Amino acid sequence: MNLALWIAAGLLAAVALVGGITKTFVPKERLAAQHGGEWTRNAGVGFVKTLGVLELLAAVGLVLPAALDIAPVMVPVTALCWILLMVGAMVTHGRLGQFKLVMVNSVYLLLAAFIVGGHIAA
């Protein structure tokens, strides 16, 4: 189970890292032009960058506390926060009719729920 939790956390951290880098460093106009980036058209630059920073922090929080054995309780807390972020993403993409992205976000949500549940059971 421990190995499965590490793999799940690593995968989710990689997703968060890529999303965070993209939202933080790619201009909003370029994001809006990409498939699935339509949500950024009506969002402020600060909001998009804030989401990017939160995703970067999630990437760190999903791996580093357990790897360093410093406050490992932060891993399931971060995963729980990721669940909340994915609910918001699913609502946003659902309103835009982007149901494939809703399904992708639901997979990320389930992965995070596995991490939370695995750490609670341990």
Rank of each mutant, 00 (worst) to 15 (best):
F99G: 04
Q98N: 14
P65R: 08
L101I: 10
G36Y: 07
G37I: 02
G36K: 09
A58H: 06
I83M: 04
K49Q: 15
T50V: 05
L68P: 12
A67N: 11
V116E: 06
P72D: 07
V91P: 00
L12I: 04
V53G: 05
A66H: 03
L85M: 01
V107I: 14
G118T: 03
G61R: 02
T92K: 07
L62R: 04
L80W: 00
A79V: 03
G10S: 11
A66D: 13
E29H: 08
G94Q: 02
P76F: 07
V77Y: 02
R41H: 14
M90T: 00
K49G: 10
A43V: 08
I115F: 02
V45D: 15
A89N: 11
G44I: 03
V48G: 05
Q34R: 15
V60P: 09
L3Y: 01
A59P: 05
A16R: 00
P27C: 12
K23S: 04
L80G: 15
I7L: 13
G118K: 11
E29A: 15
V116D: 03
E38A: 09
L84G: 15
L51K: 03
V53T: 11
V26C: 13
Q34A: 15
T24K: 09
V63L: 15
G46T: 08
A58N: 04
A33V: 06
Y108M: 04
A79T: 01
L111A: 11
L17D: 01
W82I: 09
G36M: 11
G44A: 11
R95K: 08
V63R: 01
T78N: 09
G19P: 05
G36L: 11
A33T: 09
A14L: 15
P76I: 03
V18M: 12
G19T: 08
A113V: 13
A113E: 07
H93Q: 13
L84R: 10
T24Q: 13
A33H: 06
V104T: 10
A4L: 11
A121F: 07
L11A: 09
R95P: 00
V60Y: 06
G117R: 04
M74L: 15
L109E: 03
T92I: 02
V107D: 07
V87Y: 10
G36Q: 07
L56F: 12
N2V: 03
V63F: 09
A14I: 10
G44S: 12
G117C: 00
G94V: 00
S106G: 08
A89Y: 04
L62G: 11
A32G: 12
V91T: 08
G19F: 11
V15N: 06
A71S: 15
C81L: 15
S106L: 14
I120H: 14
L54G: 08
T24W: 10
V26E: 11
I7Q: 04
D69Y: 06
V91G: 01
M103A: 14
L101V: 03
F99P: 00
M1R: 12
F47P: 00
G118N: 03
Q98P: 01
A121M: 09
